[in-house]
Design a protein around this nucleic acid. Structure first.
Lengths: 187, 187, 187, 187
DNA sequence: CATGAATGAGTTTTCATTCAT
DNA sequence: AATGAATGAAAACTCATTCAT
């Protein structure tokens, strides 16, 4: 089935994009890694940019599903926030390529076009939980969007922190500490 | 004087690197912007990478000085953290190119070599203030390095937030709110 | 029926060849326009060149038949020449794609192979009428072949002239003037 | 001097464009013929299209100068037309590449842009002479532009005729006959 | 008969870097 | 010190053609 090659291309591209950056990854390298001809990539994707965009949407969707699934079983804004932060960390480790790629692609306007921002994004899930907490007057936050920025920023940096082995703390401790810090920050 | 051209090259390169990305900026474009010949850039810098690295060091030093200068006049860890967060926001707006470039370059291992991490970096200034607060048992943080990660992550995301005009809040409000959130998080 | 697809391929190819040029038309574009698969084109034609050649022969034959039919009803060399010039103009407007394609293909040696020049061609019809006029000493021409060149050149340029809207004259006037000019030239 | 290479590129490109067509000529082939690197062609010309356009303008200018020079020494519209037709034939043989290229490029809208039609073109020289003859009521032509189309069409076809060795007539005879035919046509 | 994924050689173009002047 | 022509390797992308299904 032709779908096999398509998947191989997506997988190899994700791997190389994360490892060397999007610009530094040539279409030829992707083709070689996916064991196919360069030209074949252009059968499946209109351009390298299209490929990068498709991967971003895939990753963002996977991430969003993970978060939605995690939050579904919880009641109470605090519990939701805690589980979301933990889910984010878990995703960052179990799907570290997807997570890294989301962060990389986020900085590139040619990949994240304006119309994509209208679609459901991972951050929406956080926003809902925060909104709920604000309505119940549990959180000292004047706007949910900015609080999402804070939380995402904290978790993002913390994962880099763990990955680069900067701290002597165990990953689990970092996660626990971060969860506590996030809740202190909100309340 | 050759120094004038050197400065023009550094300035143009910084501008273009931030606007279009490092890879998407050609040496020719830098030469044109700095009103000099391509070959002349290689008289002042060994390579494009060397140029990118030099700019990073310049930016990081300027940023670090700004933070050091801000913190010098303050006594008390809380005051220091507050002033550092405010200084970081101020730098992000007054020297937006330098700030953006630091963030961009941070993701690129060819530019930020291992030996550069040994040099004094902006985050050191935060770390000192946090250490001081921990010793005085003012902050509920088990390690200063991770708290730096949290704070930097929060501020970084918040600036993107303001720059991209995502919120309806005024920049000043965002800053005030963020300062408060940081302090809640630490205490 | 397979014949339907064959016709669709020929028609689409003719259309695209004239609109964008033969080289700039991809087999894929033809397949899409004819609502078939790329591979299927190679069932009907040996190669893109073969397709281009087949179309040329079709067009040239249609053109020749048109001329032959027109001249059949006339007696007298002058009347024949007049009707031929008019028929050529009519063909250029009613079958503008076929006419354009003949002109385009004429410049390409890979399409018009030497052996095709031996076959009956449109210009033969002109040549016969001229020969007849020369024998009756009505025309001041030393050789019929060169006179065909003159006439064809005049009409060809005049049609381009009309198509590109260079003149303020009505198409009908251009045709009448050209007929008169041709006859003046011959006599 | 760098001008040498530029000229070599122009010359080789003209040669190959005429021999194999513009599309069928690769930039690599031009580079090889001009004994330079592919990349160097892009220092001198923005693109292959730019190169093709530059060559067209060069050829058209040379042709126009030739015609202007020829007509300058003549008085009387008939003499002017005669000398112009002869000059056109001479150009077609002495500068056969330039002449062929003008004809080839004329059919390509991407090369002959609209704004180029506003510039002085070879046909203008014919038009002036015809206008003069019309004012003196020597020529039976209702508009000079269409008569230019006729004359150019006749000469163009006649040169192909000679080049392809279709006739048994000597080139000089073809020219003499064509001159006479043109004058019969106009008067 | 028909499909369209796959191929691989080819295309135009870009660009960091060198070097003669 | 400065220039900018020249280089050559590599980039993204196209396309006629083949072939397994």
């Amino acid at each position: 089935m032709g779908d096999t090659k398509r998947k191989a291309i997506l997988e190899t591209a994700l791997q190389l994009f994360v490892k060397h950056g999007i610009d530094a990854t040539s279409v030829r390298a992707i083709a070689e890694g996916a064991d196919t001809a360069e030209g074949n990539i252009y059968r499946h994707f209109k351009s390298k940019g299209d490929l990068a965009r498709t991967i971003f949407l895939d990753c963002a969707n996977t991430f969003r599903s993970t978060l939605k699934k995690a939050v579904r079983e919880q009641s109470g804004p605090e519990q939701k926030i805690e589980i979301l932060v933990r889910a984010m960390f878990e995703f960052a480790f179990k799907h570290s390529r997807e997570f890294s790629y989301i962060l990389i692609a986020n900085h590139r306007e040619e990949i994240i076009t304006r119309d994509m921002l209208a679609k459901p994004l991972p951050k929406d899930v956080f926003e809902e939980a925060l909104q709920e907490g604000m309505e119940q007057q549990l959180f000292q936050v004047s706007e949910p969007t900015i609080a999402v920025a804070w939380i995402v920023g904290m978790v993002q940096r913390s994962t880099i922190f763990i990955q680069r082995n900067i701290t002597s703390l165990e990953p689990e401790n970092v996660i626990d500490e971060t969860v506590k810090a996030v809740l202190r920050m909100l309340k």
